[in-house]
Amino acid sequence: MGNITIAVWVKWSGGSSKQWLYALGVDSTKYEFLTPKLWSGKLQSAINNETGVWKHVVTTIDSATKTSVLYLDGVAVATNKNVTAGPSELYDATKDYSGYIGKSFYADPYYAGQVDDFRIYSTALAPDKVYELCNASIDASQLVTEAKSHLSIGKNIVSSDINLPSNYNGTTITWNSSNTAYLGNDGKVDACGAAINAAKAIKDNVNATQIQVDNAVETLGSAEVIFKAAVIKVVSADLNKNGSLDVGDLAIGAYHYGKDSTSAGWATAKIADMNGDNIIDIIDIIDIAYIASMIFE
């Protein structure tokens, strides 16, 4: 046998660099092996130092071209064009074994991890075939389970925007909020809307306690702070561009109140459009009033 392909799914738990995932051969004189970490040897393959993650690892050997290629998750990551020992040299008909899975030919530690779908082909698979092999052996449900086991938003009570991961190990992740009135599917919190809805519910509840009322008021106050932080941009509030916030900025906002993008002189007036909604309305006036409080505090 002049050519060979070894394909396997692995999930390494970490540990010594001398762990061998497999060793093909009959003894320590001639062998082909794979280790989770880079380590010198006769014929060597190496996978990235990633623990707790399933990886599809393939090594092909073409004796005619003296070429060995290492593939990780269907993609070639390393090539050796000076292979001196062919697969046929790794076999001895007088032996009842041709290597090990999970141990080496030396007194090295056993492999720490999991192995699945170990395959050997009597040909050096082409790159497209390696890619097909990787994807054909993927169980979608396993990928979903694996992704879920590594997901955490880092908090149980959500009071501010959260970063929702969209990908894990090649698996696309989407999110659905159980309460989109408060938390969007993109992880953005609508604190104002949630606070208003909660306050309305307390108002309509004839059995609401004073504690519930006080909590609703406190929540509305917190939402007001979030709202102000979201709509007020200190740089854009310097309407007269003099490098500070002053009464002149307030005057400009008041002068242009009521104008929108269809109004004459909008090119000049839009400087007072604090929240960029193409109209200078009560929201912008609230912004300006808040700026005034910042000035006179």
Rank of each mutant, 00 (worst) to 15 (best):
I4D: 01
A7P: 03
W12L: 02
W12G: 03
G14V: 11
Q19T: 09
S28F: 11
K30D: 14
Y31N: 01
K37C: 02
S40H: 07
G41C: 11
L43E: 06
S45D: 04
A46V: 13
K55C: 00
K55Y: 10
T60K: 04
A64T: 12
S68G: 10
S68D: 03
D73H: 05
G74E: 07
A76E: 13
N80P: 03
V83H: 10
V83Y: 08
T84I: 01
S88H: 13
S88W: 14
E89R: 06
Y97P: 01
S104H: 05
F105T: 00
D108M: 01
A112N: 15
I120D: 01
T123E: 14
A124Q: 09
A126Y: 08
K129C: 07
V130F: 01
Y131D: 06
L133C: 10
L133V: 02
N135C: 10
Q142N: 14
V158G: 00
S160I: 00
S166A: 13
Y168P: 07
T172D: 15
I173T: 05
T174M: 03
N176M: 04
N176F: 04
N176K: 15
A181H: 02
N185F: 12
D186G: 04
A195Q: 04
D214C: 05
T219F: 02
F227Y: 12
K228M: 10
A230L: 05
I232S: 04
L239F: 06
N240V: 02
H256G: 00
D260K: 13
S261H: 12
T262P: 05
T262R: 11
A269I: 02
K270I: 10
N278L: 09
I285S: 13
I286D: 07
I291N: 05
A292W: 12
M294C: 11
